[in-house]
Design a protein around this nucleic acid. Structure first.
Lengths: 235, 235
DNA sequence: ATTACTAACTTACGAGTAG
DNA sequence: TCTACTCGTAAGTTAGTAA
């Protein structure tokens, strides 16, 4: 396990699940602790405490007012729910978690990728955790705006984490990797910085191959990038 | 809510979920309480207690031996997991729970259906809970053996319950109803007796219509029966 | 090895109530 | 009304241990 997953406790998960069933994933919902307690079959006090705890773990966001709080499940919270969804699907429906696919077009990067990947700090971790020697550069793929939500969902899921490190004066942040297949042919991984709000319009793909040449890609060419979600590794 | 659902407690659900992730849905698994406790992050004693409780609620079956118990999740247990799966799908993937469809062929019943449905005890409940006046008879549909598993899954899900009753000397058992569409055209419901192992090969469909005539069906004709799973009604 | 009992401990719950 | 505090009680957990 690369991620330090603070396992959410069952009864808190259940509260989160109840909030989901009340619609708090899509929009903020207006609900009082009393209403929530009735929904869950518990006391107002318990509901209140659960909300405090969920908030402190960044699972929900609230705005409290005398006429009832507004509650919305955060990305972290949804990730927690997604995780269970994927596990249930896997075991009950016996599906390989279905791939999430993106169609995009190749664009030129600023050759920044090459710089980062050449850093030993990242390079060695990629070899260790992804199991390939990365080509010193990234393939940049522009995706459509209507796919941003699916990308967010992907990035909420499990990832392989590259630790941040210091190299002389500069310090490099941690990054998340999501293994993928490019054009159903070649392996690679989407890499995103852990901190910083990144541009959801562009995917940076690392790979053991020089994808542009191997797949004969030029700027503007269509590519397919498909991910099969990682599952939280047991123990 | 027609069913008296004994809500399983979150920490027990979590144990069930863990057993699922260890593969106890498909086959019995061999695991000791110590191993299980390590898997869940708790003590051996808690694992032991949880297993006892799950067993007493018919969620799992066990055979205990000094070299580690064999554990398998029962149909009831799977139903509990399925339920959460469906809810998560509904809210996170925004899908109408996808319909479960069966292709089968019309066969002749023994005109027993007519007898049962004419009984006031059932009749009135059908009107109340399903919202239609049932035609006094059932359409019997034979389905293929490879669909039995899907039927089992359907029947593990939520249902509308018709209470049993006494009519003079005879007593009639409770029944479960699963609303459906026949040939995507006409509403109806699969009806199965609550107790008694029934024949998974034949579906008995009740409907407000005389389906044989309305759809011009003769013995051996193909029909499609589609169900969209009920969701546990909130509160 | 196992499972599971009892007893001590720790956590979660909920009634009362303040802000 | 709200949320959330205190605090006594109930429930869940775990250490020790028996079978």
């Amino acid at each position: 396990m690369t991620e330090l997953t603070v396992q959410i406790k069952p009864h808190l998960w259940f509260t989160l699940y109840t909030l989901m069933r009340l619609g708090a994933t899509k929009t903020a919902i207006k609900i009082s602790t009393t209403q929530l307690s009735e929904e869950m079959g518990g006391s107002q006090q318990s509901a209140s405490r659960h909300l405090q705890l969920l908030e402190s773990e960044n699972m929900i966001e609230r705005s409290i007012s005398p006429e009832g709080s507004k509650i919305k499940i955060t990305g972290h919270g949804q990730a927690e729910l997604d995780l269970v969804l994927n596990e249930l699907k896997w075991y009950l429906e016996g599906k390989e978690a279905q791939t999430i696919e993106f169609e995009g077009e190749v664009i030129s990067g600023l050759f920044e990728g090459a710089y980062y990947i050449s850093k030993e700090g990242y390079h060695n971790q990629i070899v260790d955790h992804l199991g390939f020697e990365p080509f010193p550069g990234t393939l940049n793929v522009r995706i459509n705006e209507e796919d941003f939500d699916r990308r967010r969902k992907l990035e909420r899921g499990e990832y392989i984490r590259l630790e941040g490190f210091k190299d002389g004066e500069r310090s490099f942040g941690a990054a998340h990797c999501f293994p993928c297949m490019v054009n159903d042919e070649l392996e690679g991984a989407l890499i995103v910085a852990e901190r910083s709000i990144h541009d959801y319009g562009v995917m940076e793909i690392i790979s053991p191959y020089y994808l542009r040449r191997k797949l004969e890609l030029a700027d503007g060419d269509k590519v397919k990038v498909s991910f099969l979600p990682l599952r939280r590794s047991d123990s």
